[in-house]
């Protein structure tokens, strides 16, 4: 009896240590549909432009709260206020964008050309992640994963052409999209998708 109790308490303690360190949401509350544009130059991959489209519920919250003059839409100054109010949270989450070059994941303190707009009732964010220097994807593994480890936001990829390549380059690339077991979160049950750039040519 006493030993049973001790075992149970020990089991709970172990479970507690495991869970308390990270406290994910039980399921996502915000959805983002994303697609990315990989910018190529002669030297390889130079930058990635990220496109997000938020779900209508979250978009409605944002529009309602930041529509200061109550005209039913967000005017440019209102959009600016929305962006400055939310950008810090994005930075804390590394913009939910994890660019891996070889074994290194880029830490994103800032992104470039941040654009926010409303398209058909939905809030759209676009921004560019510049690589420190262009990387030749035929020599080094380059991959992009979009996810929120706290499981509060679910980032899904657009079904049609979630990855596009642009820019003048002799490389010809195609994306290889697979769940990434190494980066599993939510008690190891959710595997984010990893977009690996498979390039050839030159």
């Amino acid at each position: 009896m006493r030993s049973l109790r001790r075992v149970l308490v020990a089991a709970l303690a172990v479970l507690g240590l495991g869970l308390a360190s990270k406290a994910p949401a039980a399921h996502p509350h915000v959805w983002i549909e994303a697609w990315i544009d990989v910018r190529l130059t002669t030297a390889g991959i130079e930058a990635v432009r990220i496109h997000w489209r938020f779900d209508e519920f979250f978009s409605s919250l944002a529009i309602t709260d930041f529509d200061g003059n109550k005209n039913g839409r967000l005017d440019p100054p209102e959009i600016d206020r929305l962006v400055s109010a939310t950008i810090e949270a994005l930075r804390e989450g590394n913009f939910f964008t994890f660019v891996r070059i070889g074994n290194d994941t880029q830490k994103l303190d800032k992104v470039d050309n941040f654009v926010a707009k409303i398209v058909e009732h939905s809030l759209v964010y676009e921004f560019t992640v510049k690589l420190d220097r262009p990387v030749d994807p035929t020599k080094v593994d380059v991959s992009v994963s979009l996810y929120d480890e706290s499981y509060y936001i679910d980032v899904t990829l657009l079904e049609r052409e979630p990855v596009r390549f642009s820019g003048a380059s002799p490389l010809s690339c195609r994306p290889d999209i697979k769940p990434d077991r190494e980066r599993a979160f939510y008690f190891g049950m959710v595997q984010p998708l990893k977009i690996r750039m498979q390039c050839g040519g030159a």
């Binding site: 657009l158 999209i177 697979k178 769940p179 077991r181 049950m189």
Partner: peptide, 20 residues
Amino acid sequence: PRTTAPAAATTPEREPDAID
């Protein structure tokens, strides 16, 4: 038809993938 279905890309033999 808008969200990705990665089913084809996963390796079928391991259990956690089913949960994922």
